[in-house]
Design a protein around this nucleic acid. Structure first.
Lengths: 140, 140
DNA sequence: GCGGATCGTAAGCGCATGCATATGATTGAG
DNA sequence: CTCAATCATATGCATGCGCTTACGATCCGC
C-alpha cells in the first residue's frame, strides 16, 4: 500500500538535524554561534551596506542579529563602520581575522560533511550534491 | 578559494523549510497538525502499546504529544484503549477513519513532493531519493 | 507484600524565534 | 523647510520546544 519510503520532509528534516548536531561542536570549538557563522559566510561572499540588507540576505529578523553582530564586532571578526555618505548606515565587512576564522570553520565543517557523505558511492555523492543544489531555493 | 557551493546544512535546511512550507497548507486542509500527521504515520505502520513508545519512535517528548493524541482521539482518528493486561497502558491504534485520513494526507503530500522533485531529471531524482534514504538516520 | 520501576498527565522553566512597536538619528523628495 | 521613509536599536509578547519535576495509578521482581 505504501511507497515504502518515509516522507521526503521527514528524511530531509532528520538529515538536517544530523548535520546541525555534527556542526554544533565545530562552531563551539571556534566560539562562533550558528547565526554568527551564517553572518560570516554572508559577509565572506560580499560586504553589506546595511544590517537590514544582511538580515534579508540570510533570512533572519532584522533585530534578531544585532546581538550576534555586537559579539562578532567586539571580537574583531567584523567591522561596522558608519557610512560617511549616509550616517544612518553601518558598512559591514569581515576583518582579516574574521576571514581567517570563517575559512577555518568552513574547512572543518566541510570535512565533517565529507565524513557523513562518505557512506555514499562517489557517483551517488556527486549526483546527490548536484540535485540538492538544484532543489535549494538559495537566498532570494 | 571556495568549493563554490553553499554548506550542506544550509542547503538541506532551506530545502527542508521549503518542504515544510509546502506541506503546511495540505495538513491544514485536512485539519491535522504536523505532529498529528507524524503520529498517524507512525501508527499506520504499526499500532503502539504505549504513548512513551510512540514518543520514542517519532522522536518527540513523551509529554509533548499528549495534547495531539487528545485531539486525534476526540476526532475519532485514533483509539486509546486501556490495556486490560496492564492498566497503566493505553493501546494506540488508528481507527478506519484515521487510516482514511492518513492515506489521503499522505497521497497529497506525496503529490506535492513529486511536484518539487519534478525539476530533477528522472535518473537524478531516483539517485537523490536513494542517497537520502541511505543518509537518513531513521528513527532509532 | 514491599519497593523500585513504568505509565500517563499536568505544570513550570529556559531558550530561540517571529512579530510588533517605539524611538532617535538621518536622509531625501516635494 | 517639512514630512515621510529608512536605518539601527531596544523592548515586549506570544509561540513552540526540550527538559525537568511532581503526582497518582499500576506493575513486577524479590
Amino acid at each position: 500500500m505504501a511507497d515504502d519510503r518515509p516522507d521526503l520532509a521527514a528524511m530531509v528534516g532528520r538529515f538536517g538535524r544530523t548535520l546541525m548536531a555534527a556542526e554544533r561542536p565545530i562552531l563551539a570549538a571556534h566560539h562562533v554561534s550558528m547565526w554568527g557563522y551564517v553572518v560570516l559566510t554572508a559577509l565572506a561572499d560580499e560586504p553589506m551596506r546595511t544590517q537590514a540588507a544582511l538580515a534579508r540576505a540570510i533570512g533572519a529578523d532584522k533585530t534578531r542579529i544585532i546581538a550576534d553582530l555586537d559579539d562578532l564586532q567586539e571580537r574583531g571578526l567584523i567591522e561596522r563602520e558608519p557610512d560617511p555618505a549616509d550616517r544612518r548606515v553601518r558598512l559591514l565587512r569581515l576583518t582579516p581575522e574574521g576571514r581567517r576564522v570563517h575559512t577555518a570553520v568552513r574547512r572543518a565543517i566541510r570535512a565533517e560533511e565529507e565524513r557523513l557523505l562518505a557512506e555514499l558511492p562517489p557517483a551517488d555523492r556527486r549526483t546527490f550534491l548536484r540535485a540538492l543544489q538544484h532543489l535549494d531555493p538559495g537566498t532570494p
